[in-house]
Design a protein around this nucleic acid. Structure first.
Lengths: 134, 134
DNA sequence: TTATTTCTGCAACATTGTTGCAATTTGTTA
DNA sequence: TAACAAATTGCAACAATGTTGCAGAAATAA
C-alpha cells in the first residue's frame, strides 16, 4: 500500500509534506528525532511540520516514541488506529550511533504495582546495538 | 542526615538554592516537573536553578526521572553514587492528579533483546493512582 | 581575616513548541 | 473542467525550556 492510499484510509488529505514525512520515517521500526525530520523537510515551514506531525499522531499513523534532551522522536505506527494507540512496546536507543529502534515484545512483561491501575507502559532501553558492538 | 551534611558528603558546597531544591523534592519518591520547581524557587535565577540541577545530578543526589511535553521531571536519588546512577526503577504517572512516583521494582524485570547490549532501562507507566481511583 | 575556589545572577542566545490569521491547496459537486 | 467549501499551509508573533560567557558574590580553607 502506497503512502497516498494510507493517508486516505486514515481520513487525511494527500499533501506534499505528509507524503514527505511518511517517506522520511522510512520502514517504520526506527524513530527519528524532530531535528532530523526538520532537516530532511527543510522546504516546509516549521509550524506546518509540527501541525502535520500532530495530525498524523491523531489519526494513528505515527506516534511519539520518546522524548530526550527536549527533543521528541517520532516513528510510524504498526497497528494503531485512531484514538486507540497501542504502544506497549520497547524503544531501544544505541548510545554509540544514536539510532532509536521500535521493537515489539515477544513475551508480555508482567508486573503490577500495588493499588494503582496501569493504562499504558513505555520502556526505553539504552545500550549498544548489534552493529556498533560488532 | 540533614541536607547540609548530604551536600558535603557529595562534594558540594552548602548554598541556599541547593538546600531549597532538596527541600522542594521532599521525601524522594515523587518526581517534580521543572515548572513546579521554578515556581517554588522563584527567588532564585532560572540559570542558577538549571545549573544547580545539573550539579546535583552529576554528584548523584538527584536524577531526571522523565521528560514529558518538553518538561523534565526531577527526583531525589535513592542509592546513586557519583558517576554510577542506578535507575532501573519505574516511574508511575497518574493521569488524574499528575503525580509522578518513583517506585522500586521488587522483582527484576527479565527480558533481553536479540543482539543488543542493554545498559540501562527506564520504565514509565501511566494510569490512575490509588488516591484518584478511590 | 584573607585568599582561592566555587557559585550566583544577569544578559544574550538557540531550540522546541504553540496560536491566530490570511492565502493557498485539496477534494467534491455541478 | 470549473467553481465551491473545507482543510491545509506559511507567516508572524509568542512562550517556555535550556545553554553559554562573564562579572560580582558567597563559601570554604589557610
Amino acid at each position: 500500500m502506497d503512502a497516498a492510499t494510507t493517508l486516505k484510509n486514515h481520513d487525511l488529505r494527500v499533501t506534499k509534506i505528509r507524503l514527505a514525512i511518511l517517506e522520511a520515517l522510512g520502514d517504520g521500526h526506527q524513530a527519528k528525532p524532530y531535528g532530523e525530520l526538520q532537516a530532511a523537510l527543510g522546504e516546509f515551514d516549521r509550524t506546518t511540520l509540527y501541525r502535520t506531525l500532530l495530525a498524523l499522531i491523531e489519526k494513528g499513523l505515527i506516534h511519539k516514541a520518546l522524548e530526550e534532551n527536549g527533543e521528541s522522536y517520532y516513528a510510524l505506527c504498526g497497528g494503531c488506529t485512531t484514538h486507540a494507540h497501542t504502544h506497549d512496546h520497547i524503544h531501544f536507543k544505541c548510545n554509540d550511533c544514536g539510532t532509536v529502534e521500535c521493537l515489539h515484545l515477544s513475551n508480555e512483561i508482567g508486573f503490577s504495582l500495588p493499588g494503582v491501575d496501569i493504562d499504558s507502559l513505555e520502556i526505553t532501553a539504552k545500550g549498544t546495538c548489534s552493529a556498533c558492538s560488532a
